[in-house]
Each structure stands twice: as structure tokens, then as C-alpha cells.
Amino acid sequence: MLDGFRKYYIFARTAFRDHTSHRMKLSIRVVLCLFFMFVFVEFWRLIGREEIVTLPYAIIDICWYASLTQMFLFMSPRMFMTIENDVRSGDIAYALIRPMPYIWMRLSEAIGAMTGNTVIYYTVGIAALYLYIGGLPTSGLSGLLSAMFFLYLASITHIFYQLMCGVTALWLQDGESIYRIYQKTLIVLGGLYMPITLYPDWVQTLAYATPVSSMMFAPAQFVLGASSPLSFMTVTLITTFWLGLSGLATLLLFRICTRRLEINGG
């Protein structure tokens, strides 16, 4: 059993190293992410200055919120692309006959690369945000750390969905289009631009019913101060629930799609 895990650990570690060795690519991405986060900060500062509406949250908190959700999108490697390429080139047929399940191998690699990103974004990114926003969110360090912790877990859920999008390429030949729809859903119902609590009631209800709100809004709302709507316990529960369910769904979808592959003979 331990040996089994070790195998995946080695895959993850290799991906971590490979990922962090592309320094130019990483740096460009970090700079871009910082730029976009700062744009978000300015966006909310503008809304705060204009005082057209009264927001239920402190502006500094929403700035943190919007930046962290943006960071979340940058932390994951684009694993659906790797899988789609495997499918297109036909390499997946060879990968499938390896002794370790293809999907878990790609998952380990994605987690490794994502962890590499997390180290960089959680140091450079958080420090830059602290300086740019000018202080911690009102919920303090504990709020920020809880958000960071759950965002990391949610990133694994996010990877599951990427894997699923990639695997559908076996079926529809086009994982990227599916991913982009998933990504937009994540952006809207996950609450990238604003906390979903500001949406009309029916959209909120819809968002809560989907896994995407558990991935961005639920973790990031810990920086929204005392009025953050979800408790630590609730977030722990929904995060674990969706992580588990998404993992199962990935496995199931992968089984169905590979069966199709075997029937079609590649």
C-alpha cells in the first residue's frame, strides 16, 4: 500500500521539479496574475469610492476576496490540455497499458505542479497583495490562512474537473471547449468577480447547489470578515463532500470513456 502511494508521490515530485524549472514561464505567469489581482483591487476600490451602493463587506475584504479567487485560477496547471494532447496523439493508448492507472498518474502530476505553483503564489503573491492592499483582511491572519488552506484543497477538486474535461476528448474530440464552459461556470457561479452573496437570490441558490461555489466562494469567503456567511465546519464539510464526489465522478467518467476507447479500438 505504502509502495503504491510512493509511486504517486514520485510522479508528483517529478512534476513539481519539472514545473518549477521553467522559470521564465513561471515568472511571466506570476507577473500576469499579480497584474490581474491588482486590477481587481482597483475595481473594488473604485466601487467603494463611488458609494453608489452600500456593500455588506469592507472594501479591503472584498479586495482580498477577489484577489484570492483570481489566484486560485492561476494555481492549477492546465491539465486538461495534457490529456487532450495524449488523446489526440494517441499516446493515451500506451499510457493505458502501464501498470499504474493513467488518470491517477496525471492527477499526481497535476497535484505536484499545482503545489509548486502554490508555494510561489502563497509567498510572492500573498506578500505582494499585503503590500498593495495595505494590510490584512479584517478577519486577520486566521481568516486568511483558512482561506488559503481550503483554496489548496479546492484546487484538487478543480484538477478533478480538469481531468474530466480532458477525458471527454476521448468522446467529443474537444476537451478545450468543454473546459472553457466549465471555466466560465466556475467564474460566474464560483464567484470570481464578486461574492455570490451579492447575486440575486435565485442565482445564489443555483450557485450553492453546484460544486463550483464550494471551490472559490466557500474558501475565499473566510476573508470577508465577521459577516462571512459560512462557518469553518460548513466549509470543511462541503469541501470534503465535493472533493470526494468529484474524485469518484472522475474515476467513473474515465472508466466509461476508456471502455469506449477499447470498443472503438482507439
Partner: peptide
């Protein structure tokens, strides 16, 4: 897929302006 994709994104702005009628 592409048009669905754009429509979802556009609806986001409708939601935002629903909450905040004018931004800058």
C-alpha cells in the same frame, strides 16, 4: 460551445450591474 461560453460570461456582467448599477 463558444457561444454558450460567451453568453455565460456576458450574464456575469448583467449580474454585476444588477448589484451595482454604475461602475466608474
Amino acid at each position: 460551445f463558444n457561444i454558450t461560453n460567451h453568453s455565460i460570461y456576458l450574464s456575469l456582467w448583467v449580474l454585476i450591474f444588477d448589484a451595482i448599477p454604475s461602475i466608474g
